[in-house]
Nucleic acid binder design. Structure first.
Lengths: 210, 210
DNA sequence: CGCGACGCATGACATTTGTCAGGCGCATCC
DNA sequence: GGATGCGCCTGACAAATGTCATGCGTCGCG
């Protein structure tokens, strides 16, 4: 289907992380049919992924963002901190500027959307392995648009509020007073130009800030 | 990797529909490595899928639920109506009783979660092709449990409320009085055992009722 | 026919939410 | 060392939300 040198040596060694096992297997199959790429390990969540990468020291690490325990972004950041030299490609459903920004901050070399063509994945692996950067064109443009205006607290509070947690509950969980919680929400609502807490949470989620 | 008869004849002919192209390609790759399955067409949305199935008359049609234009459930229902004889397998992220129920009503023969093991997919194709039914075990039990307790109006109101639309807005959009909207929400909240409208919407979504 | 669901509506009330104006302590940065 | 920003808090008020009781038509069903 694509360029595929047959030599047994010089294979690009890859670790994949993805929480939906069926998709994980499918992605692995997609890469395995390329003659120059070898999937050396698979992981179902962030912790497994981190362990697998540290153990196998692959050339390239492909990961989803939303996973149990540790997000793909967290794993990428940790790998950057540890200077493992493994290049990271984020593969996700979400075309959100905030996610891309965080991905790049976390030292990722690639950012691919799950609705880009299938051949792109193997291509991306090869390019990233050569030291190039691969950003999905759909994101590349709007990437550095609005930065996240929310503070950490506002984010925490908004996340809970968006699930229907009442102010009192939120206050308890975060060890804040209820008034403070309402203040943060009010701030977030005004920053995002929303009509109420739920609207604000929806907007923040859409931008990838949540 | 699995049983794979090499004969050129008697291949199981499959059409796959999935809106995330990368996943579509990956799933196809996963099936192609099985010697007895041939992917004869791929579709990116419900309309393409319907056309492809009618054109190719495959043995098995594998589809996601959430797709543009027509959902996988809609396509399944239409195929049932037209008595094409093609068996349908739903592959989705969501372990929601409501979805499974609707899938079975729509005549689907299989319901698989994206986080079941990868080998299950080819297995499911073979079983369904033989006329068997394949339901993901995680769903099979709770499947025929609670039926949706919400009335149509409650559903409509709850959907909007869950996006942060204020009562007054909802009233306008649905041509109801604001008091009535609050009544429906109150009803829904109590039926679902929720704490407030947002919580109710969250619960309803999780059950696949929304 | 009459009964019971359902859709829609009031009005009144308690509670939660959203907004504003402050105030306190603690960093950080000229 | 003072300005500035941030996190956290208070209190008070207006607006939105949630709850109840109650009422009225209109169906469909036994």
């Amino acid at each position: 289907m694509t360029t595929a040198p047959k030599s047994g040596r010089k294979m690009i060694r890859v670790v994949i992380a993805e929480d939906q096992v069926l998709i994980l297997g499918a992605l692995a199959a997609l890469l395995e049919i390329e003659g120059d790429i070898a999937v050396v390990a698979r992981a179902r969540d962030g912790q497994e992924a981190l362990a697998a990468v540290l153990a196998h020291k692959p050339d390239v690490f492909i990961t989803d963002i939303e996973m149990p325990h540790l997000s793909g972004l967290d794993v990428a950041a940790e790998l950057k901190r540890q200077r493992t030299g493994t290049r990271v490609i984020i593969v996700t459903t979400f075309a959100r500027a905030g996610y891309l920004r965080r991905a790049l901050d976390a030292g990722a070399s690639g950012y691919l959307l799950k609705d880009s063509p299938a051949e792109k994945l193997a291509d991306a692996v090869r390019r990233v392995h050569q030291g190039l950067r691969v950003i999905d064109p759909e994101l590349a443009t709007e990437a550095w648009s609005e930065p996240d205006p929310l503070t950490d607290r506002e984010r925490q509070v908004l996340r809970l509020a968006g699930e229907g947690t009442a102010s009192g509950e939120i206050a308890e969980q975060l060890r804040l007073s209820e008034g403070t919680v309402r203040n943060y929400l009010s701030e977030a609502i005004s920053k995002l130009g929303a009509n109420n807490r739920v609207d604000a949470a929806r907007i923040a989620r859409a931008k990838g800030w949540l």
